[in-house]
Amino acid sequence: MPLLDDLSMPATEGAPDDLGRRRFLALLGSGALGVAALGTGITGLRFLEPQVLFEEETRFGLGRPEEFPPGTVLTLPKHKVYVVSTKEGFFALSSVCTHLGCMTRYDKEHAQIACPCHGSRFNLEGKVTAGPAPHPLPRVEIVLDRGLLVVDTAHRVAPDALLKVA
């Protein structure tokens, strides 16, 4: 066994079948390493994904529908939602700007909703009237539960959804 690497010695020494065996083992080894790396990556990502969240309750009661005569706009910054009462019925609008998630503000004077971050404006239906917002403000679920208005901000509903209160 020479002490020094002899460069004149062929790196792949031995019979052709021996070569095949080496290639197979090399492939097997690198394949195993690859699988292990993939597994580590996936479990790592799953580790980073929280399984339990301690976030605010998204479902909350408002009160009886009679308390909100048509024309009322309720701003509920804590729940990030507007509740609009019209002659036809009730609907709840998310108050998070669809542009980059700033909290919009209800501008009573101009009867519009304005975003302070990038200047988007919405009308009370949630439609974009000005600025860079790509979508109208989404409507979230509002139902009548045992005579009480109940909003669930986690559930988005159709953009023309309306809760009719007889």
């Binding site: 990502l45 980073l48 994904e49 542009h99 980059l100 998630g101 700033c102 971050c117």
Partner: peptide, 21 residues
């Protein structure tokens, strides 16, 4: 940071997940 992380959300397909992680 709200404004910045919502930009990450704009990445198609995986944006929502990226922001969550």
């Amino acid at each position: 940071v709200t404004v910045g992380t919502n930009m990450a959300q704009a990445v198609p397909v995986m944006g929502e997940k990226m922001r969550f992680l």
